[in-house]
Design a protein around this nucleic acid. Structure first.
Lengths: 114, 114
DNA sequence: AAAACGTATGAATAACTGTTCATATGTTCA
DNA sequence: TGAACATATGAACAGTTATTCATACGTTTT
């Protein structure tokens, strides 16, 4: 008996929590977003772009990784609308899409540096 | 000549950027932190804990995943000092370690919801 | 002490991810 | 047009990761 009552109470709690919990889809998108920041190469790319736009080969040089690797990662950042780009002749310049990136990285920095 | 001069200029730019860039170690830690948020199960766990502490089996029920899976993920969250826990008899209650988690997730939400 | 319960954890597996290599695309210049 | 350069991309491989399964650990109850 007690057990049943207890179950009911918990059920109510569950319902309340589930109601306040963001939609499944939103939580999925959120995880997908953070997944992008969860890679050293990509975080470095974004941090470098804090200073302003830069072309692919210079990014590769600064990061000490191949042009191909950078290009692949830029593709992912582009897909998440975290960076934008413009073409000038043969070279392509990448830049931060907006200030959200700065905020998100800043937020993480606070936690890192205690 | 021009090329050499150009190289030198770029070298200076590189030095400037590299100087302002956070340490390799910091960027690594940052990526490691975001990696933790980059998983649906873990993000859900953290969001549920926004409401307050909760024991393992209830977390598992709410997430619709096995007790083992939840335990493994809680272990990771614990390792990153994102959650704390207390034992009461047989059951263990988990809770958010501090408010950084809320801020970080809030930051991401802003980007998601455009 | 033994049974029952809640939680933790090691090993194994399947799925995913980042880099490399080779090559394609796009642009400029001779 | 062809060579040279900057970037993009597909396929393959290696390393990582999340879940499952089995089982161990810790606590309570009988």
């Amino acid at each position: 008996m007690e057990e049943k009552e207890s179950m009911e109470v918990h059920q109510d709690d569950f319902d309340a929590v589930q109601q306040r919990l963001p939609d499944e889809e939103v939580l999925y998108d959120l995880a997908e977003l953070y997944k992008i920041f969860g890679d050293t190469t990509r975080v470095k790319l974004l941090c470098i772009l804090f200073e302003g736009e830069m072309c692919v080969q210079h990014l590769a040089q600064l990061l000490q990784v191949s042009q191909s690797a950078v290009s692949h990662q830029l593709r992912i950042l582009k897909g998440a609308r975290l960076v934008k780009y413009r073409r000038d002749g043969k070279t392509v310049y990448y830049a931060l899409a907006d200030d959200h990136v700065r905020e998100i990285i800043g937020c993480g920095m606070e936690h890192i540096t205690e």
